[in-house]
Design a protein around this nucleic acid. Structure first.
Length: 867
RNA sequence: GCGCGCGUAGCUCAGUUGGUUAGAGCGCCACCCUGAUAAGGUGGAGGUCCCAAGUUCGAAUCUUGGCGCGCGCACCA
């Protein structure tokens, strides 16, 4: 200790003696102030057995573990009245003495924070104002060796930042919850916590270290503590109800409320049990003749009220027995993490006191809630705690007005798991809009535009709509069962109903985050695959009104999209209640009026129809989308833009089931269309394009081979993949010689086949497939590419001229390039069809808009005017 | 001090009992579409998964320690 102090004080000390701190224990000392010492020697008192004997009760060094050696003298003066650890030291000392004879709690500070006359130097002054005088006094008496300032946490009033607080000993009422610790832990063990770690972490820990619940508060507002004390004997009674109170002998004081009520007739009778009226109510003491029973002054901690919610909300046990039984225990509650010591605890504690295993009315755990979802905190834009004074957040009203309440709600529900702290930022909310809300709205807008054009009116086709579930729609005129519709429709309905089932599963597990992600993926599938691939059907000739001109396939597309939108509205309703209601109001109520539920929020939540889910189709469509995406990647890598038609795409599937490969081959048109190629093939001679390698399936081989795994992996890398695969297919297993002796027997399922594109091909690969695109350009393909460039240019020009998409035009081309001219001539009908041109000539057009451009190196001047 | 959580792409965040190429959105770059059009789509670049040690055939993932951030321990028990 001496060296560190010498260092700090910049002084040299002479070492007189060395001894451990324990040597000081038991020694007497003179306190710096003689406030409580009085005169003469310190009185002694008897110790409890087995130590026996006696010791001075005070001014004696005791041991404690919180004293440090790097500051002070190693001996500190404790003030048990003003600090918890100091009080603990006192309590330990008291327990060494025969009961009642040990050191007492001394206190020279009055309840108002001023020193009492017992400490004359500070008498009547606020304690913190006396610091300077106390230091000066100690210095003048040469008791102060060193004084310094240091920074430490200090409590301040939470309402008035500049008012320092002091800890102060007060009498309190407690509930002996520590005696119910095991029951609370047993109850907690049965509760599901989300996230799970709260159960044994923050909350479990809190229960493990449970201390008695300090129930009373010395305040005015609050539930009066229902305990009456005999003014003569100090004996107490807890009064369980107001009726009981009124039935007490010689009850008096209820007139105080009656007079107040007479003066103010609006006064609620409920206030009879509250301050100040209840304080006036007294009754005859059963403990001493002639004495009165008076209520104690304290009120109850309001957290007790919060924890009584499951019972008190029904007035139970005085009333509401049926309601209480019907809802107890609750399925789940939810609040933020700060309620661990608040509402989560108060509810569990009270419920366990009432219904724990030792209670007369014990209930099976868990109660009063089965699941608790613990939310993270909401933070401001800067990631700091939200603060009114710092204004580090955007007013919710601004968010509502700019992006809508649904945007905010979706951001909370779909942005992150609920137990994460959420950074509330305008940018994040804004950016969450296009991905889901806007996409959903665009699909809905697409539907309404074309449904109107084609006369699709569900109400005209369906008399008894029910709640527009799948079975209800099946009764519609012109409605065909999914099995009779196109593959794309069957796929869409599969995705829809599979998603509904999954969302229900996730929501039942209180996992709204995953449910929202599924929902978002579904809307993406509708928008980016179903609608996109269905455009031809929506734009085909014929109507969708069920009349004689009806195009059946078009009607299928409408029913599929209608069912999808209506069902998505139901699925999304709890997440984005306003947008979904708007969609429902138009698609359902707008058509069917009061034949359907008046709000989407009054419909049953879709659970999905498993019989409509074709899992093979879902998997295969994903394969097509993957292949298409790889094809685009291969093009992009070679800078072969999609406008340029190419001859051929070849696909090598890595490990797909033969049935999936056949299915894919049957969908050549789809892939060709997506990739703008003429021909699609499952590659017949894959070895031209790819290298196959065999990889160990580590999840399977790991447990099997353990330590030999690296050797097996090396051996596998050196093995000829084709030969090994052939052997595995033929024999079902193969032996692999390992370096350093021994062999490993592997089966077909133990390895994965990986295909890698060879150099020199326009190829892209994923774990599922390798897609190779032919780079070869024939003159015919080049011509087609040029023509599409021109179409593209014309469309851009139409757009610049702000022409309606139905406006007819006239076109004139001027080009010195014979190649471009011949390409245009050959595909003139295509160009005119695509651009809605009534005429197209190789000459200038008077009064036309002109645009000169370069089409892949061929100069062209476009003349465009309205027809 | 004690306890709990978090640290992954420029930003905001996912990552399902440890497994082969760690994902999304936004932003950025390139491109496509032009009959959802003040919309829509595709591709790409971008990561020592905070650091270190350990366990393991194998660690973003498990353990321990460290660093950084947040929260709780007050009449908010």
């Amino acid at each position: 200790m001496a060296p560190s102090l010498a260092d700090k004080l910049k002084r040299r000390f002479d070492v007189v003696d060395r001894f451990p701190g324990a040597a000081l224990v038991g020694r007497s000392y003179l306190p710096p102030f003689d406030t409580f010492r009085g005169t003469g020697p310190c009185p002694t008192a008897p110790l409890v057995e087995p130590a026996g004997g006696s010791e001075p009760v005070a001014w004696r060094v005791v041991a404690a573990d919180f004293v440090t050696t790097d500051s002070g003298t190693g001996v500190v003066h404790v003030a048990p009245a003003f600090g918890e650890v100091d009080y603990t030291v006192l309590a330990a000392e008291q327990s060494r003495f025969v009961a009642g004879s040990g050191p007492t709690l001394v206190n020279c500070v009055a309840p108002d924070g001023t020193f009492t006359d017992a400490f004359p130097m500070g008498s009547g002054r606020f304690v913190k104002d006396c610091d300077r005088d106390i230091a000066r006094d100690l210095r003048s008496r040469r008791l102060l060796v060193h004084q310094e300032q240091y920074v430490h946490d200090y409590p301040f009033c939470w309402r008035a930042d500049n008012d320092p607080l002091i800890q102060y000993p007060r009498q309190s009422w407690f509930i002996r919850t520590s005696q119910f610790r095991d029951a609370m832990l047993a109850n907690n063990a049965r509760i599901d916590w989300l996230p799970e770690h709260v159960k044994d972490g923050r909350f479990g820990n809190f229960l493990e270290t449970n201390v008695d619940w300090a129930l009373s508060r010395e305040r005015y507002w609050g539930t009066p503590l229902p305990i009456w004390v005999c003014e003569e004997t100090g004996k107490m009674e807890a009064v369980p109800s107001y009726d009981t109170l009124l039935s007490k002998p010689g009850v008096a004081g209820t007139d105080v409320f009656d007079r107040a009520k007479a003066a103010n007739p609006t006064l609620s009778d409920d206030l009879k049990v509250h301050k100040p009226y209840i304080d006036a109510v007294t009754y005859e003491s059963p403990f001493a003749a002639g004495a009165r029973m008076r209520r104690v002054p304290e009120v109850i901690d309001c957290w007790f009220d919060s924890g009584a919610m499951p019972f008190a909300q029904w007035g139970w046990p005085h009333a509401g027995d049926a309601e209480f039984k019907a809802q107890f225990p609750a399925d789940f509650i939810s609040e933020a993490i700060d309620q661990t010591r608040g509402w989560f605890y108060s509810q569990l504690a009270i419920s366990t006191l009432l219904f724990g295993e030792r209670a007369p009315d014990a209930r099976p755990y868990p109660h009063p809630f089965k699941t608790c979802i613990v939310l993270g905190h909401m933070l401001g834009e800067d990631g700091q705690k939200m603060s009114k004074s710092k204004r580090n957040y955007k007013e919710p009203a601004v968010i509502f007005d700019t992006y809508g309440a649904d945007a905010l709600r979706w951001f909370f529900l779909a942005g992150q798991p609920p137990w994460n702290s959420i950074r509330y930022s305008e940018r994040a909310i804004r950016e969450s809009v296009p991905e889901f809300l806007l996409r959903l709205w665009n699909v809905y807008a697409f539907f309404t535009i074309y449904a109107r054009i084609d006369g699709f009116d569900p109400a005209a086709l369906l008399a008894t709509p029910g709640a527009l579930d799948h079975a209800d729609l099946a009764r519609a005129r012109g409605w065909r069962p999914a099995a009779g519709r196109s593959e794309l429709d069957r796929w869409m309905l599969s995705e829809l109903h599979a998603t509904a089932a999954l969302m229900v599963e996730r929501l039942d597990a209180f996992d709204h985050f995953s449910a929202a992600q599924r929902l978002s993926a579904l809307v993406d599938a509708v928008s980016n695959w179903f609608v996109r691939r269905s455009r031809d059907r929506f734009w085909a000739s014929g109507r969708a009104d069920g009349g004689p001109d009806t195009n059946g396939e078009k009607l299928d597309a409408y029913w599929t999209l209608y069912e999808t939108l209506v069902t998505v509205a139901k699925l999304a309703a709890p997440f984005v209640p306003f947008v979904t209601e708007a969609i429902w109001q138009n698609l359902a109520v707008g058509s069917f009026g009061d034949h359907v539920p008046e709000s989407v929020h009054l419909t049953d939540y879709p659970t999905g129809h498993e019989q409509l889910v074709d899992h093979d189709l879902v998997r295969r469509m994903a394969l097509v989308r993957d292949v298409s995406s790889l094809g685009r990647a291969a093009r992009a890598a070679e800078k072969l833009k999609v406008r340029q038609p190419l001859a051929k795409v070849e696909v090598i599937l890595a490990d797909a089931a033969p049935a999936d490969a056949d299915w894919l081959a049957a969908h050549a048109d789809l892939v060709c269309d997506e990739l703008n190629v003429k021909q699609f093939e499952i590659c017949g001679e894959p070895d031209r394009y790819i290298t196959r390698s065999v990889l160990p399936d580590l999840k399977k081989l790991g447990p099997k081979l353990g330590r030999d795994l690296p050797k097996a992996r090396d051996a596998l890398a050196k093995t000829d993949a084709a030969a090994l695969l052939a052997a595995l297919t033929r024999d079902g297993n193969a032996s692999l010689p390992l370096a350093g002796g021994g062999t490993a027997v592997i089966e077909r399922d133990d390895v994965l086949v990986r295909t890698t594109a060879k150099e020199g091909w326009a190829a892209a690969e994923s774990p599922l497939a390798v897609v190779v695109i032919s780079k070869e350009l024939t003159p015919a393909l080049v011509a087609e590419g040029l023509v599409r460039e021109v179409v593209h240019a014309v469309q851009s020009q139409r757009k610049t001229l702000d022409l309606d998409f139905t406006a007819r035009i006239e076109l004139g081309f001027e080009t010195p390039s014979a190649e471009l001219r011949s390409a245009l001539e050959r595909h003139l009908a295509y160009v005119m069809g695509e651009t809605l041109a009534d005429t197209a000539t190789f000459s200038t057009l008077p009064d036309a808009d002109r645009d000169s451009l370069d089409v892949d190196g061929h100069p062209l001047t476009l003349h465009l005017r309205r027809a």
